[in-house]
Structure formats: C-alpha cells, structure tokens
Simulated scan of single mutants.
Amino acid sequence: MALQAQVKDTLPSFKDDYYLVKEGDTLMIELPEVAVLPKHKFKEPKDVHYYYWFKRKVFKAYPYATLASKRIDSLRLRLDRIPSKSKKRKYVKRVQKYLEKELTDQLKKMTRTEGRVLIKLIHRQTGKTAFENIREFRSGWKAFWYNTTANLFKLSLKTEYSPNTINEDYLIEDILQRAYIQEELIFQEPKLNIPSISILESKKGEINVEEYKQMFAKIRKKKKRRSKRSKKKKTVSPNYR
C-alpha cells in the first residue's frame, strides 16, 4: 500500500547567506545564528573550582537584578500617567513597600560577594547605578537599600558595571553570556550598552580568579589561627599535685 507524505516540502529561504558544501555541490540553507565564545583558559586546573564558585554567586544575584529592572520600568511607566505629584509620591511608596517585602529577606541572606555582584547587575540591567535609582525615586528607598545592601555588605551603591575594564565584571559577563546560550538563565535585555561578544573575544577565554584565591587563602589562615587559639585554651588546665 502506497503511503503519502502528510506535510509538503516548502522552498528554502534565500534571505540569509549561509552555505553548506558537500561533495562539490553547494546547497544554500537557512541556519540559526549561534554565538560561539572562546574556550576557557585557566592558569591552573584548580581555578575551575573558583570560577564555578563565582558562577553560583552570579546565578543567585541575577534574578533580583532582573526583577528590580522590571519593577523600575513599570514604575516609570505608571508615574508618567499620574499627573498629581502627591499621588506619584503615594504610588512610589506603595511600590517600595511591595519591593521591600519581595527582596528584604532574600538580600539579607546574601554573602558580601553576592551583594557586590547584585549592585553591579542592577547597573547592567537598569542602566543606572543603585545610587542613581535611589536618587530618582527618593522617599524610603535610600533607607531600604542602605540597610539591606550597602551597610550590610559594606559596599558602595555607586559601584558601576564595566566588563571591559574590571576583571570581576568581565567574569560576570562571561558567565551570563554562556548561561544565555545554554539556556541556564532567562535573557533580559540590559539597559547598559555592552558589546558583550567583542569583550569576551578580546580576552580569548582567559579566566583570572586570583582575587578569589587570595580571599580564600586569607579565610583559611584566619580559621587556622582560630583553631590554634581554641586548642591552646583546651590544653591549658590547672596543675593537680
């Protein structure tokens, strides 16, 4: 019994100049554009662990930065439609309280590194530093951000995101771009104009995690000193005759 095809073949699109060459024949086909990033180059094999440690920090901070961007965008749109200044102030306060409920507990659970990454990502996603966003809406936001982020982590809310000049920011951008490709994170268009691919290509995949290695080396030294002091206290006991 003869079987018939259920779906008819359609003509290929000739809009894009992608080619497949096989055994001397040239066939024009349409292919999706895929960003190919340089392969990572680590100075030492153990550097991979520090990179993935930092990746977890970026993954934790990123959703809060995208949430802040969405809320700020909707806030600006809403404020443009409100003619009265007093009503605008009331609306800003209401949104602030809502954001505080969403973010306060989560932000207080963050480490200092996560808090620093969040401040940088807020600049990346909103186009303004955390300080500039606070200055724009004023009211109770200053107290909220200083209490939950700046004072808590001893960080500056004026910190800017610059992946082309700052190594940590480059690592953040590298992690984000690879996560987008692997669909590990949901892409949100940054308000900050960043030539991401050219920045990553210029570094040729080189990964520098020295600052984190030094940070953990200091932590290990402190732990050793504490353990030595605690051992000395335990060994000191009164002499019995």
Rank of each mutant, 00 (worst) to 15 (best):
P32M: 03
E33Y: 11
V34H: 03
V36C: 06
V36N: 05
L37W: 00
P38A: 06
K39A: 06
K41E: 08
K41F: 05
F42E: 00
F42M: 01
F42C: 00
K43A: 13
D47W: 14
V48R: 14
V48I: 10
Y51S: 00
W53A: 09
W53S: 07
W53F: 11
W53E: 06
W53D: 06
W53L: 11
F54H: 04
R56M: 05
K57R: 11
K57D: 08
V58A: 01
F59C: 06
F59G: 02
F59I: 13
K60C: 07
K60A: 15
K60M: 09
A61P: 08
A61R: 07
Y62H: 13
P63K: 12
P63H: 12
A65G: 05
T66L: 01
A68Y: 01
R71G: 02
D73Y: 10
L75Y: 03
R76D: 12
R76Y: 04
R76V: 14
R76A: 12
L77D: 12
L77Y: 12
L77S: 13
R78S: 13
L79T: 09
D80Q: 15
I82D: 11
I82F: 01
P83Y: 15
K85Y: 03
K87E: 15
K87V: 06
K88Q: 08
R89H: 02
R89Y: 01
R89M: 07
Y91P: 04
V92K: 01
V92I: 14
K93D: 13
R94P: 00
V95N: 11
V95F: 13
Q96Y: 11
K97H: 14
K97F: 01
L99I: 09
L99F: 07
L99E: 13
L99Q: 13
L99T: 06
E100C: 03
E100T: 13
K101C: 00
K101N: 14
E102I: 11
E102N: 08
L103N: 05
Q106C: 08
L107M: 13
L107I: 01
K108D: 08
K108Y: 03
K108H: 08
K108V: 01
K109F: 10
K109M: 11
K109N: 13
M110Q: 02
T111L: 02
R112H: 04
T113E: 10
T113M: 12
T113G: 04
E114T: 04
G115M: 00
I119W: 08
L121A: 02
I122G: 04
H123R: 05
R124P: 00
